[in-house]
Design a protein around this nucleic acid. Structure first.
Lengths: 350, 350
DNA sequence: CTTGACCCTGACGCAACGTCACGCTCTATG
DNA sequence: CATAGAGCGTGACGTTGCGTCAGGGTCAAG
C-alpha cells in the first residue's frame, strides 16, 4: 500500500507543498520513489507523519519535532513542560496587551472621537511612561488619564502659568512664584500618592526624554524655577528660628544638593517596606548619607541642628513636599541611633 | 537638533538595523541626509517614531501602522476593536492548547515514563480523534484515556478475542460470537454514553483512517462480523413472534441497511435537542426515512408490523444497542403522526 | 494521439528584523 | 598630521513554515 504525495496529503489534511517541505528539510522522506521519481509513502511513513502532526498540534517547531523523533531517549514530559511554560508566558503577555487595549477602548468610547493626531500624542506619552514605570506604578499614576477635566488639564494649566511667570520675569523668590511652587508640589505629592519612588522615576523620565519635555512643557528650566521658589517657601520659615549667620549659611547651601534627597528617601522607603533592619549595613550607609546631606546646609554646629529640629517640630509645613512621613522618619532615626551606637563601641575599642 | 541613527536608536531603545528597516520599507524615512550620506532625524521624525512604537505595542503590523499614519481619517476605535478580537481569539486558542498539554502532562505523571514510541502512538490516535470529534465530544469519550487498566485495555482484550474467534472460524451466528457482540455493543453504548452522534463519528473515523484500523485492530471485517453476530441476537428473539415466512423475510433483510440507522437516529436526536418541532419538514423527511428503513426489513404487511411492535414492547433487549431511548421514540412517533395527518389531508384535497 | 490530472524541481515571497561583510566618515589622540 | 577606533552606509543572506508560480515530465482515459 504505497501512497503518492497527493493521496497522502488528502488523507492527512495537508497540502502537497507541505509534504515537499517536510521532505526537503528531512523531516519526512518517503521511503521509496517510483521509476519516474514520484514520492511513494509506505505505512511507516504515514505513521511518522501522524506523529509529526500530533507533535505539531502541541505547538512544537518542525526542528524540535525532528529532534524528538530522531532520539527517542528524549523525555516527553520535559518537552511538554517547556511548552506549557512558554504558553503560559505567551498567554500572560496577550492578556496584558488585551487589558491595555480595552482600557484604551474605554477611553476612546467616552471621548467624542478625538483627532488621530491627539491620540497618537497620547499614545506616545503612554509608551514613554511605560519605559520608566512598571505596570503597578502605572496603575497609581493618574497622569495618564486622558480625561481633560482631570489631572492632565490641571497640570497643563499650571505649567502654562509657570511659563508665563518666567516670561514675565517674575523672580522665583517672589510671593507669586512661591504660590505656584506650593501648588506644583502639592499636585505632585497628590499624583504620586506621596511615594518618593514614583517621584524619582518621574524625574528620571523628564530628564531622559526631551520629547516629553517638549510635549508637556516641563523643561529643566521650569523644574529649576519651581525648585528655587519652593526652597524659598521653606527658607522664609527657617529664618524665624535661626541667627543671621546660621540663616545665611543655610540660604547659601539649602538648595545645592536638593536633588539628592528624593533618591535617598526613595531608597529608605523601599528598605522600610522590605523590612530591612535599621542596623543593616545598607541602611547604615543611607543614614550616613542623610546626615551628610543635612550638614551640607545645616553646618556642623549642634546648636544650629537643635534649632532646625525645633523648627521642624513646630512647623509641619517644613515636611511638605519632602515625601518624608513620620514612620519613615522614625525608621531613619533608628538607623542613626544604631550608627551612634556602633561609632561609640568602635571608639571604645580604639 | 538632528540625530544620527545610532543616537536615535539609543534614545528609543531600538537597534540601528530596525531604523534601517523602517527606512527601507518607507515607514520612517529620515527627513535629511548629511553630505556624507548619514541619516539625520529631526523632531518630527522622532515624534513619528514614537507614534510607531506606540502602535507597535498594540501588536499592529508595520504595514498597518504605515496605513494608519498615512491617512489620519482612519478610525482608531475600529482598529483597536479588531486587535482586541484577534487577541481574544489567540488567547482562547492558546488556552485550549495549554489545557490539552496539561492534561497530557497529568497522564505522563501517573504512568511511569512510558516509551516514547508508545506515546507517539497514543498521540497519533489522539490527533485522529481530534479530526473527527469536537472538543466537547472528546471530553465525553473515555476511549482516549491512557490508563491501561480502564477502557482502552478492555477494548484491546475484546478486539483480540474477536480476532481469535474469526481466526478459529467461529460462525457469527454461534452463541460464542453473539456473546462477544453483546459485550461489544454494551461497551460501545457505555463509552459513547448512548449518544448516537458519537457513534456515527466513531464509525466515520474507523472507516476513514486505515491507520486507526491497523493500530486498534478494528478492521471493517471485524465490524462486519460483530454486526452479523449482533443481528443474530435480535433475530433469535423476533423469531418467536413471527410466522415462518415473515421471519425469513426479516432474516433476509434485517441487516442489509443496518448502517443507515445510526446516522438517522443521530440526526433525529440532534433535532430533538434543538427543539425542532415534529412537523418541521426536515423531521418529516427523517420520519419518512425511518419508515422506509423499517419496511425494508419488516415488509409492508400491517399485521407483521403489529407483531414486531408487540415484540419490541415485550422485549426491551430489542432496543439494546440501537441508541434509541423512549423520549426519542416518542418524538419520532409524533413526527409520524404529523406525517399521517398531512397525508390524510392531502388525499382529501385530491 | 491528445487531454487533463498529477508529479517533479527550483525559486521567490512573506514579517520583522539579526547578523555578517566591505568600505567610507568622523573624531580623538599620539 | 597620521592613524585608530567608533560609527555610518549599502547590500545580502538567514530565520519559520509553508504559499504560489513557472517550466517540464508522467500516467490513464478517450
Amino acid at each position: 500500500m504505497l501512497l503518492k504525495v497527493g493521496d497522502l496529503a488528502k488523507r492527512c489534511g495537508l497540502t502537497v507543498r507541505t509534504l515537499h517541505h517536510y521532505d526537503s528539510i528531512g523531516l519526512l522522506k518517503p521511503s521509496a520513489r517510483s521509476d519516474s521519481g514520484y514520492r511513494l509513502y509506505n505505512r511507516a511513513d504515514i505513521s511518522r507523519l501522524h506523529q509529526i502532526q500530533a507533535l505539531r498540534r502541541f505547538g512544537l517547531s518542525l526542528a524540535d519535532i525532528g529532534d524528538i523523533l530522531a532520539n527517542p531517549g528524549l523525555n516527553l514530559a520535559t518537552i511538554v513542560e517547556r511548552q506549557i511554560e512558554a504558553l503560559d508566558q505567551q498567554i500572560a503577555q496577550s492578556k496584558a496587551l488585551r487589558d491595555r487595549l480595552s482600557g484604551l477602548q474605554l477611553q476612546l468610547m467616552r471621548g467624542e472621537e478625538p483627532e488621530l493626531a491627539d491620540w497618537l500624542t497620547t499614545l506616545e506619552m503612554m509608551t514613554m511612561y511605560d519605559k520608566y514605570f512598571s505596570a503597578t506604578d502605572l496603575k497609581r499614576l493618574p497622569l495618564l488619564d486622558i480625561d481633560e477635566t482631570s489631572t492632565a488639564g490641571e497640570w497643563a494649566a499650571l505649567v502654562q502659568a509657570v511659563h508665563e511667570a518666567m516670561q514675565a520675569g517674575v523672580a522665583p523668590e517672589s510671593a507669586e512664584a512661591q504660590e505656584l511652587a506650593r501648588q506644583w508640589i502639592s499636585m505632585l505629592e497628590r499624583d504620586t500618592q506621596g511615594d518618593p519612588r514614583l517621584l524619582v522615576k518621574l524625574n528620571a523620565m523628564m530628564v531622559g526624554e526631551p520629547t516629553m519635555q517638549a510635549k508637556t512643557g516641563v523643561t529643566p528650566e521650569v523644574v529649576a524655577y519651581i525648585q528655587r521658589a519652593f526652597i524659598e517657601t521653606k527658607l522664609t520659615i527657617y529664618e524665624k528660628y535661626l541667627a543671621a549667620d546660621e540663616f545665611s549659611f543655610m540660604r547659601e547651601n539649602y538648595g545645592k544638593r536638593a536633588d539628592e534627597w528624593p533618591p535617598l528617601i526613595a531608597a529608605i522607603r523601599q528598605h522600610r517596606e522590605d523590612s530591612t533592619p535599621p542596623n543593616d549595613s545598607r541602611m547604615q550607609q543611607l543614614a550616613r548619607t542623610w546626615l551628610e546631606l543635612f550638614r551640607a546646609y545645616a553646618g556642623d554646629d549642634p546648636e544650629t541642628h537643635a534649632k532646625i529640629r525645633a523648627a521642624n517640630q513646630a512647623e509641619p509645613y517644613l515636611f511638605f513636599g519632602t515625601f518624608i512621613d513620620q514612620p519613615l522618619l522614625a525608621y531613619v532615626f533608628q538607623a542613626m541611633a544604631e550608627l551612634r551606637q556602633a561609632r561609640l563601641s568602635e571608639s571604645c575599642v580604639a
